[in-house]
Design a protein around this nucleic acid. Structure first.
Lengths: 343, 343
DNA sequence: CTGAAAGCGCTTACAG
DNA sequence: CTGAAAGCGCTTACAG
């Protein structure tokens, strides 16, 4: 491949002049610019981005890490929607996204530190905040800007994030169910080691507490975002008999579907006997039967905002610190209704 | 950040020795290796991957391009499943994935050529073969290895690809419907400018021809992979009255769902009055009602295979040329059944 | 406005 | 087994 040097020779100028033309420096006369561009065109020259990155110490790339072994990730709307938001914004700024596959959750931070430690990206969008690994501290101990999608736990207030107020919106969902007369309400979270599960649990507890209800510990379960997780939760909670929930709130739609199917297999009607609410408002929610009432979380918008913040910080050469909250929206369909009359 | 030079100084060796230690060269005595590693550890040294890439002329990165504006991409299973396969394999080989967002389909090839022309990736996985842009020629005119997911049109036999025999499996689907007595069968493709649409159309035509049926041109339509596309196809075909199809085959599940909904809104029963078959066997297919019979296409496996081929070629420093066909599988559920008795 | 030179942080053939 | 040097292909402060 031709280099700046070949172009310089052909155009009869110094390589630095070619460099100036291609890096858009203003101090180039129009005649030499034309000559250089003509020579470059003839040779099919394209600047080597790697060399430029080394020289300029920036790559115009932002990094994310994704655990390729986690099936639920690729079945849910979270990942594709986040990618859409990321690409929309990176594309606008001429940035690219470097995706590191990881073998598990602990490996994600290893991958990210490796990428930024070896200077392959200018910033990080951190896709989830796990409680079992101290991601935030690890990221704060290095110099590359990062933005969290989600919220850090209170001990790390300083970092930049974009969040969806999961506590508050979960509280709203529970209030919606309370408002329809439900008293025994279950919460089926995703992965208990992810902060959002704790936040939703918190919202669930607040809502019930305000209503003067002390939830049974058995009403809380985790389904790891897969359908069978929802089914298992129903199986366990059904054993409670009279104390079994009349309404379920699940942290994604797939678990909610599992819950509905499992209940239907017990010949329970939805929503007449039991109400179910999901999360994410995926296509599944719209086309399930009955159609699933679901809490829409705008991941694409969140990712776009996070990416935008991150790129601004990279360009300004400062650490991002802004904290943004994006509203959610409960999409009401047919799967949740008034509580059954007490026997 | 510390460089090889700082480590060398601290360890009392020449920088080239440090380089040899970190690039795993065997000719290093154990004592100096220890000394170098200790010094590196103390300084928190991590080799600069960009500098290494420039020096070694390889990046351990493979590139893909994705049109961020194309909503259907992020709603369908294609993209996440491809990502999963890509990450699974890249991760195994210590490679990463560089994703370029593009503003539209023509821009995808621009992005890819820009990435490889500027040496930011060692190879390309091309995600779809459009007919309106000559992607293959463009890629064949440059030196970076690439593998196509899908099949090139016959004029480009030489390139490497991983395909799912879309013609053959579409023929099977149509045969399945023919076998149940359907005579008026519709094909609702995705985007007519993507090769796979042509291949499926071909399979459709072959099957009908073998059965001695000449399909009406009105039985073929394109829904661009979105639900409304399926609905519109039904709307148009319903006008045929007596000649309206008794069975629809759609190139993805979302369009099939649109078809089912639209038919149900006309008070037609599925499958008693009209049969519907989708493609991809997404979660939607499993949870729609009636549950959708769907042609499973293993995108994740195809992407893994393509990536594996590509990385082998990169490591062997040759252009890939292997051509692989991955089998599909018709998943039979409730949405397709015997043709209604003729009036 | 342009050239000459040093530098970005590595790798690797060449000596010894 | 290790050092010294040239090179990967750019950028940019410094002269003029």
């Amino acid at each position: 491949m031709p280099t700046i040097r070949d172009v310089a020779e052909k155009a009869g100028v110094h390589p630095s002049t070619v460099s100036r033309v291609f890096s858009g420096k203003p101090t180039i006369s129009n005649t030499t610019r034309q000559r250089v561009l003509a020579a470059a065109d003839e040779l099919g020259f394209q600047p080597n981005a790697i060399a430029r990155s080394l020289s300029m110490q920036c790559t115009h790339t932002i990094a994310i890490a994704v655990s390729h072994a986690f099936q639920g990730y690729f079945e849910d709307v979270f990942f594709p929607q986040v990618m859409q938001g990321l690409l929309e914004v990176t594309s606008k700024y001429g940035f690219r996204v470097l995706v590191a596959g990881s073998n598990g959750h602990a490996d994600e931070i290893t991958q990210l530190l490796d990428i930024v430690g070896s200077r392959q990206a200018d910033g990080i969008v951190m896709l989830s905040n796990r409680l079992d690994v101290d991601l935030i501290s690890a990221l704060q101990n290095q110099a590359t800007p990062f933005v969290l999608i989600g919220r850090p736990d209170p001990s790390h207030e300083a970092c930049a994030w974009v969040d969806s107020s999961d506590t508050m919106y979960t509280e709203q969902v529970i209030n919606y169910l309370l408002g329809m007369g439900h008293q025994r309400i279950a919460y089926v979270g995703g992965d208990p080691d992810v902060l959002v599960s704790k936040e939703r649990l918190h919202g669930y507890q607040i809502a019930l507490q305000k209503a003067g209800i002390s939830p049974l510990p058995e009403w809380v379960d985790y389904g790891f975002f897969v359908e069978d997780g929802g089914r298992q939760a129903v199986r366990r909670m059904s054993r409670l008999g009279e104390l079994a929930p009349t309404a379920y709130y699940a942290a994604n739609d797939l678990m909610a579907i599992g819950i509905m199917r499992s209940l239907q297999e017990q010949n329970l009607r939805i929503p007449e006997d039991v109400s179910v609410v999901g999360t994410n408002d995926s296509l599944l929610a719209a086309y399930a039967s009955p159609a699933l009432t679901s809490l829409y979380v705008p991941y694409s918008v969140m990712a776009a905002k996070a990416t935008s913040l991150l790129i601004q910080s990279i360009l300004a050469e400062e650490m991002p610190s802004s904290q943004t909250t994006i509203p959610c929206n409960l999409v009401i369909r047919a799967s949740a209704g008034p509580a059954p009359a007490a026997l």
